[in-house]
Write a protein that binds this DNA or RNA. Sequence first.
DNA 1: GTCGTCAACATTGTATACAATAATGTTGAT
DNA 2: ATCAACATTATTGTATACAATGTTGACGAC
Lengths: 242, 242
Amino acid sequence: MFGRSPIGPLGEATLSEKSSRSEVVYKLLRQAILEQALRPGTKLSEDTIADHFKVSRTSVRAALVRLNAEGIVDLRANKGACVAEPTLEEARDIFALRRMLEAEVIRRLVADLDAAGVKRLQQHVRQEETALSDHGPLSIRLAGEFHILLAELTGSQALTRFVREIVSRCSLILARFARLHSPECAVDEHVQIIRALQSRDTATAERIMLEHLDAVELRAELDTGKEEPDISAILQRYARKG
Amino acid sequence: MFGRSPIGPLGEATLSEKSSRSEVVYKLLRQAILEQALRPGTKLSEDTIADHFKVSRTSVRAALVRLNAEGIVDLRANKGACVAEPTLEEARDIFALRRMLEAEVIRRLVADLDAAGVKRLQQHVRQEETALSDHGPLSIRLAGEFHILLAELTGSQALTRFVREIVSRCSLILARFARLHSPECAVDEHVQIIRALQSRDTATAERIMLEHLDAVELRAELDTGKEEPDISAILQRYARKG
DNA sequence: GTCGTCAACATTGTATACAATAATGTTGAT
DNA sequence: ATCAACATTATTGTATACAATGTTGACGAC
């Protein structure tokens, strides 16, 4: 049916260069999750996704396997996939590790960052400011990508990889626990970070980054009561009572 | 053909509990790579693997996608998979990050580690000593798993995940660059680490771990000349000259 | 002899078909 | 009416078939 046009019905995402179908599905699902369009716990039925994107389940499955490896999709045998639901315990664990990783990023950048890097950061922040007026999902994604850009500027692929993964998982945590769907990071805090980096003052830069991350974590931590009803957990509570 | 017995021809790996075929292929491939039976650069043809394990290419592909996500398999579009070949630059990058992660592990363990944890570590080292006499691939794997066990004992899933990944990639690096195929870590250094942890002296414990990692890295670093001939890299060097 | 072209082959990417498992609904006995 | 056992349905896991791309080697032009 689609033999003639390798990447036909997927449309938009195929403009820049040809990617495989599974690649496109992967990117779109990932974006949807990180922009909180698909919330934690949402069932990801292979058929539904395949129909929606007009591809075969094969491609969808490949995408789900990748997302599972990144920790943003849960995959239970014979029971399908769903958007991961980090627990509060996992959340604290992940935030602790994130502080360590991003502190390292800052330390490296204070030593290394050049003018070109600063320019890229400032450019990114300008994008964030523009997107902010939309109150759309874009600003959520850009906020996370600021931190990834910082990691990239260290020149360490490995560090970037880990920061990317942990930022993704933090997005999930916020999606699950935070009250507001607004961007996770205040843009002006990003501006402060850039200034601190330019000052070459490691202690200050690190402190500002950690305060920034605390602020992000606080938004989740404050709000644990709001966690959406989980049938089995609730029933188990009642079972213990009766 | 295999309709009757869900996990028939794979045999050995299915004893403990039923896993999906792709899961089994994933585990076996991963083990083969980490035990250096499949060396960096080895082509991983889907057909070959499928035939060898008596499963369909579908299951093999799923396994390869996972391994690729972990960074131990390279996957180039339309050109198949091969065991990743970390460059020397990547190697240094990865070792730097590993030092940071494992230093964190040590700091946490000095604070937290209990008697049960010590016992598990000692038990593991005993396994390592036993395996050492075989001079087989097992000792290589166990050496890496000591570091993973350390991470697990911190109780941090996220940290464990990252340590597991980075230890895997270090195994690949050693497989590519180190002269000897013997275990990457000296067992007595592991014993020293345990002792240092018991002493609750953060500075000493951290120093010993870092020295240990330096020793591991040195084994790779010393030996960069031995890198097997890579046509394109060589030609590129000559292209710059001419 | 070297380079370019094209056809035959091999391998990967995707779709579809089938098998196996879990979820759901129905029936009948108590 | 309740519950268990069975039949039915839906969904995932795997295999196979086909399409698309990459590779190899033969042939001919220069």
